[in-house]
Amino acid sequence: MEIDRLKIYYLEDDGNIPNNPDLPVLIYRNAVKDTAEMEEIFHLNQWMNSWINGIHDYHHYHSNTHEVLGVVSGDASVKLGGEKGVELTISKGDVIILPAGTGHKKLSSSTDFKVAGAYPDGADFNMYEGSLKDRPQVLIDIKNVPLPEFDPIYGNGGPVNKYWLQSRTRA
């Protein structure tokens, strides 16, 4: 993978959305040429329980699993990390890997915007919207989510393995 196509974001707890204290968000720009194969690529790398749809237009996160989102068509403006997070434009072929706890929200999109989503080993995901009543349990859940064995695009030895394993050993 060309390093200029890899973007890394460490997102802090914004008070409502916990994000992940140890693992960065990874964004692979223009990583998949034939986006019709997005789900198949995820499956080959053991990211399952996949779907194709959009991204919710409200801040939400999953405390019990990591998530990969691959843009199948169109483009969108998204906010990662809650209100105090980062705003990005994502386009066809881009892949976003969200560690457990990372908030995400669609701000706007083209009419043809679609993403494929999947989870390591086909995990079932929960959904939270940033209510303080959910803490401290979600913080415990986030810390206990295991690292995936494979990067959802590049398999063994991809950026997930490199950056997430480095992050875990630093924590």
Rank of each mutant, 00 (worst) to 15 (best):
P159Q: 01
F113H: 11
H59L: 11
V72D: 02
V145P: 09
P159C: 02
A31Y: 03
D34F: 08
E2D: 12
I8W: 14
G158D: 04
K133G: 10
T65H: 07
R5Q: 15
R135F: 12
Q166S: 10
I153F: 00
G130S: 03
T102M: 11
G158V: 14
A36L: 14
E83D: 09
E87N: 13
N30G: 13
N20M: 06
H59E: 15
G74L: 02
I41E: 06
L147I: 03
V32N: 00
G155R: 01
E12H: 14
V71E: 04
E149Q: 15
V138I: 13
S77A: 04
S108N: 12
V71G: 05
D22H: 07
A100L: 12
T111H: 12
H59Q: 10
R170L: 15
M48D: 09
H56I: 14
N161D: 08
L147E: 06
E39M: 14
L11N: 11
S109L: 02
N45L: 08
E87Q: 12
A100C: 13
G117T: 07
S77Y: 07
G74S: 04
Y128P: 02
K114E: 15
L107S: 01
Y163V: 00
F42M: 10
E67K: 08
A123C: 12
E40A: 13
T111R: 13
G155M: 03
N156S: 10
K162N: 01
V115T: 05
M48N: 11
A123R: 13
P18W: 10
Y10T: 10
I41D: 05
A116Y: 02
D151I: 05
Y28I: 00
P148I: 06
L6Y: 06
E37P: 01
M1W: 06
K162A: 09
K106C: 12
S73F: 03
W47S: 04
P159H: 08
S167G: 15
G122I: 07
Y128I: 00
E67V: 03
V25A: 09
I55R: 04
N161M: 02
H60S: 04
P18M: 06
D13A: 03
N16Q: 10
L11R: 09
G122D: 02
S167V: 02
V138W: 03
P18K: 06
K106F: 00
K106Y: 00
D141P: 00
V115Y: 08
D4A: 11
F113P: 08
E40V: 07
H62Q: 11
W164Q: 04
S63E: 04
P148D: 09
W51L: 13
G54Q: 08
V115A: 05
V71M: 09
E83N: 09
V32Y: 01
K105L: 14
G15W: 05
T65D: 09
G155Y: 03
H66W: 05
S108H: 01
N20W: 14
L132W: 01
H59P: 03
I52M: 11
Q46K: 12
M38W: 01
I17Y: 13
G155L: 01
V68T: 06
G85R: 13
W164S: 01
V145T: 02
R5K: 15
K92E: 14
A116M: 05
Y128N: 10
T169S: 14
I96H: 02
P21R: 05
